[in-house]
Structure formats: C-alpha cells, structure tokens
Design a protein around this nucleic acid. Sequence first.
DNA 1: CCGTATCCTAAAGGATACTG
DNA 2: CAGTATCCTTTAGGATACGG
Lengths: 157, 157
Amino acid sequence: MEEGTSQSLGSSADTALTTDRHTDYDVWQWDAREDCEVRQILDRIADKWSLLAIALLDRRSLRFTELKREIDGISQRMLTRTLRHLERDGLVERTVHPVVPPRVDYALTPLGRTLHATIKSLVVWTEAHQEEIARARADYDQREADLRETSAVGAGS
Amino acid sequence: MEEGTSQSLGSSADTALTTDRHTDYDVWQWDAREDCEVRQILDRIADKWSLLAIALLDRRSLRFTELKREIDGISQRMLTRTLRHLERDGLVERTVHPVVPPRVDYALTPLGRTLHATIKSLVVWTEAHQEEIARARADYDQREADLRETSAVGAGS
DNA sequence: CCGTATCCTAAAGGATACTG
DNA sequence: CAGTATCCTTTAGGATACGG
C-alpha cells in the first residue's frame, strides 16, 4: 500500500536544489511533523501577522512605528516578535540608525521578495475560488440544517 | 450571500481605499483581519493537519482509519474536525457507505486538487530556499550570541 | 522611538471514554 | 469502523508597565 514510509526528511545535503523531481515526490518529505522545514515556513507565513508585514514591506521599507500604524490592531509585543522571526529567517532586514530618537528601518530581503511572490499565487487561488468556497459552505450548512430538522421530526415513515 | 466580496485583485482603477501611495495592488484587500477570505483559507491550510490530509488524498481516496493510520500522531478528534472543515469548504468529499461495519471514504474534490497544486509552489519554494534560510538562522543566532557576549564582557578592551 | 518583561485570557489540540 | 463528548494542557497573543 505505502511506498515504504520514506523517512528521508532531513536529507538537506546537496541534491534538493534543482526543482525537477517534484512531480512524484513523497508527501512525507514536505509535511510531517516538527522536523520538517515546510512545516516551519508554513507556520511562519501563516501566523496572524507575518503575511501582512511581508506584504507591506514588499512595497517599501518601513520603520517600526509605521508598521505598527499600518498593521492596525497589532500589539507592540507581536510586532516585535513577528519582525524578529522574519529577520531570523532571512526574510526581513533590520537597520538601526544610531540617532536619537532611535530610528529602525525594516526592509524585505531578496529572499523575502521571492516568498512574497510565491504567496501571491495562493492569494490568487483564493480570490479565484472564494465564491465556490462560499457556495460549498452554504451547501454544507444547509445539509446540516436539514439533517438536524429530519432527526428532530423523528424519522417519520 | 456575500455578493460584494468579489473585489478584484489587480484593481488599478478603483483603488484609493485608504491611501493612494499604492503602486501595486492593495495589501489590505487580501489580508486584513477575520473578514478576509484569504485569511480563512490560509488558516485552514496552515493548521496542523489539513495540509497533510490534502496531500494524502491527492494520491488516492482514503477511509477514516486509513487516514488516521497514515497521519501518524493525529488524534481521533482532530482528524474528524480537520476533515469536516475541509468538507465544508468543498475541498474534500465524504462518502458514507451504508454497511456494517460502516465505511466512509474521503476524496479530494476538483477544487481540493487545484488547491493542492497551488500549495505545491510554496513547498517548492521552501525546498529551494531551505538552505538559505538555515544559513540566515545560523547567522542570526551567531550575531545574537556575539551580542550577548559583548555586553557580558561589558565594554572591555 | 523602539523596544523588553510580566501577567492574563482564549483557543488549539491531545487523551480518554463512550456509542451506533 | 467511524465517530462524539468531556476533560485537560499547552500555546498564541493581547494588555499593560517599564527601560534605553
């Protein structure tokens, strides 16, 4: 049944750079548990604020307070954490200007730009299918409601 | 129902949402808060198990216990919840066979397949850049360590 | 202005027991 | 087999206060 649970997860040696053999790859290679890189990146871009920060910085570099003002609703704490994570992953570059009052600029790295470009395809997919999804949800909820009603009536005939 | 939600992405004419300094499309259109479709889809595919389930079902349809066995580590509760969510969004189809013992098959819908295809581009990106990210992290951690050491020494030399 | 430290709440998710 | 229901732990993230 299974092709032998290939555990070649962390084999990030020298082979995985060329992108050709991705058509038949093994699922377990790119999403397993915590040890998988894909999982980590996905967790990073999918958290509550990272994506928004990346999108904003793709337009132009911003300083801390500008980001805080643009990402309305984010707390000081979460903005700092988000930016630190992005910086650590090499997606965002942080520049401190030694002046008073302090000025810190955040900019997307080239790596961050390519990620943003990739994310866009997901956005495009969502926009292309959002009505289909909305319909599916409505249908599902309707079926659910029908089911509940039927069982409430009490199995008539 | 939500008829007005189909704002286009590359709107170049009707921008001027809040600011007019947008060169590209408007960020706020595709990731703002809970009211955004992209946010919901992203939350769906980024949760702990959905992506794995989608990837498995893209190969062939599976029944509940098969999924439970393949997604090692998932709890009964979370598998059910994950599948229900995916079904509600129209990404997975659930087929109940009225036999004893019960048999329930899960299969990806065409919509689910297109989503999986889209997700793959993110996976490809990650695989292509995982070493770059690893290096960035190592560099960052090293700089952090150096900083701590410097401040520990306390303006020596 | 740009953070860090601390506390607190809400939600995600695991473990376990039970059911048609 | 394919779920529900319940309890419990862990974590994400907000609020607030303080520091360089």
